[in-house]
Design a binder for these strands. Structure first.
Lengths: 344, 344
DNA sequence: ATCTGGCACTCGGGCGTTCAGAGTGCCAAG
DNA sequence: CTTGGCACTCTGAACGCCCGAGTGCCAGAT
């Protein structure tokens, strides 16, 4: 049949858009009168009421009680984000400020710290930034250092500036020549390779060494592979939790599960993990898998030094948030932090 | 004159103690009747009322409005903590659980992460743990690695398991022999020395090298000293912010400045910095320098691997907290994490 | 000298009532 | 299909009321 999903005509969409905008601004249910006043849709309140009834019928808005204004539902926000809103670009001064603020960073930690604070400030919400993950980055250098006769320190440096170090307890004494040899061979093969590819490239390495040295070589490599694989080392930085106080009126109930979620790196990582690599993702209310965040929305996007994403960042706010502005800020910050990473 | 500070007799103190205990339990102003019911002070409500009047006169308690019960003031809590309360020792099973939970840690990050979670769980408040500071610890090893002709990586490993690394851009090419020489001399002098003492011990080092190498040596040493001195690299880990929701009824107002404070490493570091090294410190309400924490209390103590403290930890909670229990938990956790550090 | 019971007083908070305003749905007319 | 009109609903603020918990004080008992 022709209209299995009933088509909403142009004006009804305009009404929905207006409702979302007003509600986000005032935090109060918005009625037909107020709507026609503030937005000049060229029709009367009565007409708007009819449209509202239709929108409610379709599940885009809902009224808390009879004779109150309307509030967008998750579905309403979803439609708004998908069809009705344009991402609001940052103004030139804002872009300059972002750029300038991030430029001051001295190392990777600092970049991430500045990014997350910046994002929290711009959006006035809770910001989350994932450290550039080891998985996507490439090897800049691998170093082996003898600390004691049978103790070696392994240091891995990535192109994103991240440094990981591990102690390796070797089965026997490790000579400096062996170490130098091993170091040379590892670096020759691994430099500029993506981390997940490295184990494959080093597989045949033990066979190239003398029989007696093979246990040592294998031990070192095992630790290296472990370090490379260690996904759980993915770290996250948070800022702007104080903005939670602006969440809603039914305060403690909403905020507690959110605070709990924010403490669980695992939950946050999963949250960001659901973000598509390149495109910006918006998860609204119930769309969030973790139910503590059922009354929040998450706007996230990947960022990276080159054209591909090495990590994600985003913000968490009430479903009633300024989506165009938030999305604009998130996109801009992701873009600039990517540039910074590429330069360093 | 005899009693410049009016002496509070034994019973009045007992009344104060009872008030604090009850208020902490119920969160409601406590009246004379309720007191004699729950604690068997062998006197009548009327007598208690007289005592209360005296206590109020002295500023230890106060009533929100006429005809309400009494609430302890900061001064009342202070007296309670100083004179009336005994730190509540952990039970044997609790101690075992602490020990067991901390024993599972695999590296320093993990120790700190586990400690802070544990503390938050035990006290049901916000826990803060400072990373073992570079200042107090000693050098285990210093490593120099040539990454490129004029680029050296410097790695500092401390006895607390902390690893710091820096890139050094040298004025000219650095030969491997020079590097080995320098590495040897530095380590010979610095190993097992306290970090702040190291610069003094290495001062004369450049003079021992050939004229041409001195700029390089000086550059490396400068970076090393910088790393040693870098107090601001002191990191802090937090947990239990969700417990803030149990703070009080006048919620958003109390919680916002606290959340803000928790995000500022600087504030937290200063907070912990005020802790006396060995003794446990309790700062109650207004005693906290930072005014956002004026309606909270902070219980903190130093911990360390040997007999001396390398860092601080503590909890932040409402002034109305269970001081004996909290202090017991803080002390126990500090003790055990110290042991763990000493072993590793 | 101290404790106790009694008593009058105060005040906050819960509860029901009232009232105004905002907003709705519906209908009949344009 | 839109509009103005109208009757209806419901919330939230304001008000008044009363109960009860708690106090301070005093006079008498120990």
């Amino acid at each position: 049949m022709a209209g299995e999903v009933r088509q909403l005509d142009e004006r009804k969409l305009a009404v929905l858009r207006a409702i979302v905008q007003d509600y986000v601004g005032t935090e109060e249910p918005v009625g037909s009168k107020a709507l026609v006043d503030r937005h000049n849709l060229g029709v009367s309140p009565a007409t708007v009421r009819n449209d509202m009834a239709a929108l409610e019928e379709e599940g885009y808005i809902h009224q808390p009680h009879t004779s109150a204004g309307r509030i967008p539902t998750d579905k309403g926000y979803r439609l708004f984000v998908d069809k009705l809103a344009e991402i609001k670009p940052m103004s030139a001064p804002e872009r300059r400020a972002i750029r300038h603020f991030l430029d001051g960073a001295v190392d990777l930690d600092d970049v991430v710290a500045r990014t997350v604070r910046l994002l929290a400030q711009l959006t006035r919400q809770v910001a989350v930034v994932q450290y550039p993950s080891l998985t996507r980055s490439t090897v800049r250098h691998i170093e082996l250092v003898a600390l004691a006769p049978a103790k070696v320190m392994l240091v891995l440096i990535t192109n994103t500036g991240r440094v990981e170090q591990r102690m390796v307890d070797c089965p026997g004494t490790v000579g400096e020549t062996l170490l130098a040899d091993l170091r040379g061979r590892i670096n020759a093969r691994a430099i500029n390779q993506r981390l997940p590819d490295v184990p494959g490239l080093l597989e045949e390495l033990p066979a190239l060494f003398e029989q007696v040295d093979r246990p040592t070589v294998s031990t070192v490599l095992a630790t290296l592979f472990e370090t490379l694989a260690e996904q759980n080392e993915e770290r996250i930085m948070l800022a702007g939790t104080a903005n939670l106080t602006r969440f809603g009126h039914d305060f403690p109930l909403t905020i507690q599960p959110v605070l709990e979620a924010l403490e669980e790196q695992v939950i946050l990582l999963r949250l960001l993990g659901e973000t598509g690599d390149a495109a910006m993702t918006v998860r609204i209310g119930r769309e969030n898998a973790y139910e503590g965040l059922n009354s929040t929305s998450v706007v996230s996007v990947g960022y990276g030094s080159g054209d591909e994403s090495v990590a994600k960042l985003g913000v968490i706010g009430p479903t009633r948030m300024d989506y165009p502005g938030t999305m604009g800020a998130v996109r801009a910050v992701a873009r600039y932090v990517g540039q910074i990473l590429a330069e360093s």
